[in-house]
Structure formats: structure tokens, C-alpha cells
Amino acid sequence: DHDVVPEDKFQETLHLKEKEGCPQAFHALLSWLLTQDSTAILDFWRVLFKDYNLERYGRLQPILDSFPKDVDLSQPRKGRKPPAVPKALVPPPRLPTKRKASEEARAAAPAALTPRGTASPGSQLKAKPPKKPESSAEQQRLPLGNGIQTMSASVQRAVAMSSGDVPGARGAVEGILIQQVFESGGSKKCIQVGGEFYTPSKFEDSGSGKNKARSSSGPKPLVRAKGAQGAAPGGGEARLGQQGSVPAPLALPSDPQLHQKNEDECAVCRDGGELICCDGCPRAFHLACLSPPLREIPSGTWRCSSCLQATVQEVQPRAEEPRPQEPPVETPLPPGLRSAGEEVRGPPGEPLAGMDTTLVYKHLPAPPSAAPLPGLDSSALHPLLCVGPEGQQNLAPGARCGVCGDGTDVLRCTHCAAAFHWRCHFPAGTSRPGTGLRCRSCSGDVTPAPVEGVLAPSPARLAPGPAKDDTASHEPALHRDDLESLLSEHTFDGILQWAIQSMARPAAPFPS
């Protein structure tokens, strides 16, 4: 592969990997390779389809078979030569091979799209000592099968071997295949498990690692696999990028399955594409389908809103127990993405979901129960707010008499603000006073009005108090039968009158 990737590009890729991570280095090298001529790309395919690569990765054979028959990708048995050289000459001794072996032994695996480039050397060096003999053996194999790289107009793939297949390693990572398949204008990513390549439709969760975000852009890794992070704060999961590491605690105790298979379609829109997988259930989501939507993949363990709600429900009964003089119970939860139609709101002032922060849900004790107040519409209280300059209440639009249902020339009671006709409430011909108009209920007259088809109010509507207090003497005590009587009149003013009279009014101040 030294004929494909020059030394300066190799060093530039290593520097970019240390600065921005393996995914960015892979993407940059792939983009550079696509700008080369067809001879360089053909050399790339020839390096990929060597015999030892085909033996190690069985899924490469179907890719090789898909090439046109007129494309010669065979390799000479006596060494490598550029395709432009007409004579089959043995190339001179390859010093770059020693360079590659020494550099890969030092860096474990470079971040390139060629056999030198995919593992994360920093994480491997940190986690190597417990498994040094086995990992050293794996390093000797890295130059042979560490990076199976493929690129063409139909298929483009980048393979990364790992030393996680050490025997006896619980939940060992089998390997990473960062794979971009450009077929019919689409893009897919796969993962390699035990020599087999699994596409998103049959993606397997190998051991402790999972394909957290099938994305090839942005600074985030394709698999949430930063070796420096180790395990999740809650004892979460091992990262795919942690090559040759000792077994780590796999999943939280509440995880239903340690080796679950995540779905390959969004649980909201039932469509495929780039998904984020939940650590607590097999569901996966688009970032845009979450509520609120996320802009980037959160670091650490992530769970959907259903799993978060289940966790909150487990903690909430203990938080609601009476604990005198104790601060509110704080339950730190990872930043969760909410699927459509589901929402768990945190306290005000918290950062938005999706940031690399930890939301704190506070379970406050329930407030003391209070008697429910009568629910009145805002339009129902409008007549009470229509007060004239002299303190006389004006008529609201649409006000109707509670007896006849007519809204023409209605009066407004100064005591309960109900609309009424003087002739309907006082049919006996009582003279109307000039000021202080009161309806039949507030004036103490319980004589029913002779209106055909309208039920008369119940005599129990009024329960006047002592006459010594004029204001308190007109406080009506309405009961269920009074409400039914008012409802039978089918008037809004009657219902409003009952609601206003049912509310307690402050006692009249004593004259000074």
C-alpha cells in the first residue's frame, strides 16, 4: 500500500487522527484517494484483494465477484509491481515495509483507509498491559489484515481490525468495519463480527460495544468508541475503539438485554438511515425525530424517553415518601432524547437536551391539597369587569335574561352582576328603583315568574340570613337542586349567576 499512500500523506493522516480522531482521518484520506487517478484506485483494489485478505475476510469475495470481468485485479505471486511496468521484474528490497512494521508496532494501528489505518492507538496503548502477550500477537497480524480498504464507483468500504477477539475476553470487541457502500446513491455502514460483515439490516451488537450512531460526518466517531472515555459513568459499556482492553462492566443492572439487537429503522417514522440506538431497549431513532430533536450524538450512555420514564417511576415512589426537613431528592440522569409524543421536562434553567451534561430531575413533595375552585371561562368573567365610571356595571355583549332568554333592554344586578328583565323577575308590577337594581334572587323575592315553557326556580334557592346585616342577608345558599333548576333554563347567565354566588365573597367592612 506504500505505492498507493505516500509517506507524507501517511504522516498527515496520523497527525489528523491524533488531533480530530479516526473518523475524520478516514474521511480525509478517502476524499484524497478519490481525487487520484484511476491507476492509484486500481492499485488500491489490488492491494485489498490479496489472497491473505480474501482468506481472512470471507465477505470480500462477493465484492470481488461483483467487479466487471474485464477488470484485472489479480496479484502476481513473485511480488508487487506497478501496473504500468511491462516487465515482470522483482521490485527492489522494500524498506517501507520495515517502516510500516515499526510504526504500526509503535502506534498499534494508524488512522488511514489502508491496512495502516483504523484502530485507535492511544486507547490501545492505555489498555494494553493486562493483555500484552495476546495483543502483541495481534499486532503482528495487523499489517496483514488490519485495514481492508475498498473503493469503487459501486462499493466503497473501509475495514478496521481490532485485537478484541482475544480468547477469554468477556464481551470482547470482535472488530470495527467502517463501511461506506455507495449503492444507488445511498450510504450504509456496517460492522465486522468474527470475520463476517453485518449491514444495518442485520447488524449484531457484538459483546459490549454497539453501533451508536451510523454517521460518517462530524467530529463524533462512527461508533461511540473513545478509548479514553473507558466505561460509562454508571458502569455503562465498553467502547469499540478500545482495542485489546480488559473486560469492562457491560450494562447497567436495569438493562433488559446485554447482547440485544437494535432495530435498523426509526421507532417514530419507521424509516432507515442514520440512527441513534438506545442503551436500554432495542429501539433506534433519527436525531430529527426525537422531541426535542438533537443536533449531535450525546457522549456516554444514552437512553430513550421510555427508558428514562421507567427509571424515574422506579425512583419516584421512594422520593415521595414523607421525609421531614430533607432537601428534594435529586436523581442524576443521562441526557435523554425524547421520541415524538413523549416529553420529560427538567427543571427550568437546565441546558437543552443533547448537550454533554447531566440533567437533574428533582422530585419535590406534593403540595397540600386544596379545595378545587369553580372553573370559569374568561368570557364568563367579562360582565364582572365591565364597570362604568360611576361604579355601575355596563352590559356585556350577548347578555340575556335568565328567565325569558331575551337580551333586549336587559338590566344588570348590582349584587350578582346577572342580566335580567324587571318585568320577568317582578311581574307583579313592583316599581323599579332608580339605583341599586337587584334581581329577584338578590332582592329576596322568590315568586316564580309566569313564563310559559320555563321551569320556575326551586323555592330553596334563597336562604336569607339575619336582617340586621343587609349585605350578609342576601347571601344565597345554592344546592344541587338549585343548579339543576338553573340548568333547565338553558341560559348561560343562569349558570354564571350560580357560579358567582357559589364563590365566597369577603364580608362587608363594618362602618367606622
Rank of each mutant, 00 (worst) to 15 (best):
L376C: 08
G346W: 13
L287P: 08
C277E: 14
A288L: 09
S458Q: 10
L487F: 07
S458T: 05
Q325Y: 10
C416S: 01
Q257R: 13
D255W: 15
H259E: 01
I276S: 14
E330F: 14
S305T: 13
P374A: 09
E320G: 09
G465T: 11
P457F: 10
P511I: 12
A248E: 01
S291I: 11
A418F: 01
D409M: 02
L373E: 12
A418D: 05
I297C: 08
A396T: 12
H490V: 08
Q257P: 03
A366T: 08
I495P: 02
L376Q: 05
G300F: 10
S305C: 11
S443G: 08
H415F: 08
S431F: 07
S245M: 14
G241T: 08
P464L: 14
C307S: 15
E475P: 07
V387T: 05
F420W: 13
G398Q: 08
H421Q: 02
V315N: 11
D469Q: 09
K468Q: 11
G349F: 11
P448S: 08
A418T: 05
T301F: 13
R438I: 11
S291Q: 04
C266M: 06
S441D: 14
S473T: 02
C289L: 09
D409E: 08
P511T: 10
A419P: 06
L294K: 05
E390G: 14
P256M: 14
E350L: 13
V454E: 00
S431G: 13
D264A: 09
F426E: 07
R303P: 14
V454G: 09
A288W: 12
K468S: 14
A504S: 11
A477S: 09
I276L: 04
S305N: 14
L496W: 14
C413R: 02
Q316A: 10
S458R: 05
A460N: 10
D255Q: 09
L385A: 11
C307H: 15
P509M: 14
E263Y: 04
G346T: 08
P367F: 06
P335R: 10
C413I: 02
P335Q: 07
A284V: 04
E320P: 12
A371Y: 14
P367S: 08
T301C: 06
C404R: 02
V268W: 15
E489V: 03
M503A: 02
T311N: 10
P427A: 12
P459V: 11
L486W: 08
Q243T: 12
D406A: 11
P464V: 13
E296N: 14
A396P: 05
F420C: 03
S254D: 05
C439V: 02
Q260M: 07
D409R: 03
T430I: 08
Q257K: 09
V329D: 14
S306C: 10
E314V: 08
R270L: 12
V268Y: 12
P334L: 07
P457E: 09
T358S: 09
A353E: 13
M503T: 12
H382T: 09
E350M: 05
S502Q: 01
S485K: 13
P256N: 02
R283F: 04
G272D: 11
P459Y: 04
E475M: 05
P466V: 13
P397Q: 10
P383C: 15
F510R: 03
L352Q: 13
S379F: 14
A507G: 10
L455S: 08
S443Y: 13
S339N: 13
A284S: 06
P476S: 12
A467Q: 14
